[in-house]
Design a protein around this nucleic acid. Sequence first.
DNA 1: CGTGAAAGAGCGGACTT
DNA 2: AAGTCCGCTCTTTCACG
Lengths: 155, 155
Amino acid sequence: MDKFNLKLLELVQKNNRLTAEQLSEKVGLSPTACQKRLKKMREDGVIREDIAVVNRSKVGQSVTLIVEVTLESERPEYLDQFKKTMRNTPEVMQCFYVTGNADFIVILSAKNMKAYEDFTRRYFFENRNVKRFHTNVVMDEVKLGLSIPVELLEE
Amino acid sequence: MDKFNLKLLELVQKNNRLTAEQLSEKVGLSPTACQKRLKKMREDGVIREDIAVVNRSKVGQSVTLIVEVTLESERPEYLDQFKKTMRNTPEVMQCFYVTGNADFIVILSAKNMKAYEDFTRRYFFENRNVKRFHTNVVMDEVKLGLSIPVELLEE
DNA sequence: CGTGAAAGAGCGGACTT
DNA sequence: AAGTCCGCTCTTTCACG
């Protein structure tokens, strides 16, 4: 993790379709060196995945919700079961197991509030292990990213 | 937005480095048709960006926190000021303005708890407009994505 | 890490349905 | 309007210095 790799990460976190040549100009290495480094970071799992981000509002997904979920029991088998369900549920974009008042924080996407109501029925009300949940409706996506600022990274 | 585009979106949301040929096999169109469709979706903003996702734990960012923030005043000028600060703060990965108990939900990344403590001092305790905040420490990133499930999309 | 050649992928034009 | 085929160009890849 030297400054070249950090610079590469900074760039590809914003845009992973830059060519090796474009990267090389900004990084100060040869194109091939950039590619070799990126390949290694992908193999090592430093770069976890390369994805396209879709604009929700352009594909009929107009509401985003953040739900705090508390389970009846925090026994491992119930936790794992809940995690598995969240992973396999398409509406769920993100899910975190957390300390604090709630057990899970779930970020999900829906076509409209009716669709979310249906979701709560299926996954929360009909799940005996869900003790309670509290819904926050997103009014403004102030900032939305998965990127890590290079200022915070270490060599 | 026909079924071909939806299939393409499904694929590139998981991996945008697939070649046009690989896509064509799964989609059932020619490679060129896939490229043209993707190009158009990028131009139209349906695909918003193409990014590499970095594994935080491998670059010295070991803790993720989800914070519910309540402001003293919800007057527009204060809201906007807080939003602007969040957008410009590198530690903040995501920030949502929400209805519910809190005003904002902030997802942020830090090197360790000490670094988060410093963060709270700077941005929460020293901000007179922050009435209270509640921190959830992420123990497990169960699911982490910005993707939209294709099952939910409409043609 | 850089160079250079070979293989592969992307891009655009012309033609077809 | 959209898809396919084909050829050119740019990119990636890999062996070697």
